[in-house]
Amino acid sequence: MSPNNQSCRVWSRFEGHRKNGSVLKLRIQEPPSTAQERVLDFVAKYFVTEETFQKAAGIYSNPDAIVEYREILHEVLKSWVVVICCEDTEEVGEILGVSAIEMVEDKSFGEIPIQTKELQNLIRIMIECEKLVKPLMKGFAVHHDGRGITVHPDYRGLGIASEFVKIRRLMVNEQNVSMSCAWMTSYGSQRAAEKDNWETLFEIAPEELGQKCGVVFKDPPLTFKLMFVRSSKQ
Rank of each mutant, 00 (worst) to 15 (best):
P221S: 03
S61R: 15
E75R: 12
E194Q: 10
K225I: 03
K131A: 00
G148H: 05
K19W: 11
T49N: 13
Y69V: 05
I66Y: 13
F140T: 00
S108M: 02
T185R: 05
P32Q: 09
E130R: 02
Q175E: 14
L222R: 09
K78W: 06
P113G: 05
P153C: 04
G58E: 14
P113M: 08
A65D: 09
S232L: 12
L132Y: 01
C213E: 01
I95Q: 04
I123F: 08
V23D: 10
G139F: 15
V151A: 02
L222W: 07
V92L: 12
F109C: 04
S232E: 14
V48G: 04
I167Y: 03
G21S: 06
S61Y: 14
F140G: 00
K131G: 00
R18L: 07
T150S: 15
C129A: 15
E199G: 05
Q29H: 05
G93I: 13
G21W: 09
I123T: 12
F53I: 01
V48M: 07
K78D: 08
S232C: 11
E94S: 03
K225G: 01
V133E: 07
E199T: 11
C181P: 00
A141R: 10
V98M: 06
H144P: 00
V10L: 10
G16H: 05
V81P: 00
Q29N: 09
G148K: 08
K134T: 06
K78H: 15
L158S: 07
V104L: 03
W198N: 03
G148L: 07
Y46R: 02
E30H: 05
V172W: 11
A57K: 09
L26S: 09
P206H: 08
D145K: 11
S231N: 07
E91I: 10
R9T: 06
I66V: 15
R13P: 01
L170Q: 15
K212N: 05
L136Q: 05
I66P: 02
A161K: 11
A56N: 07
T49R: 14
E68L: 10
N197F: 08
N121Q: 06
P3A: 09
K117H: 15
E118F: 13
Q54G: 01
V10G: 06
S180V: 13
S7E: 13
V92F: 11
R70F: 12
E208M: 04
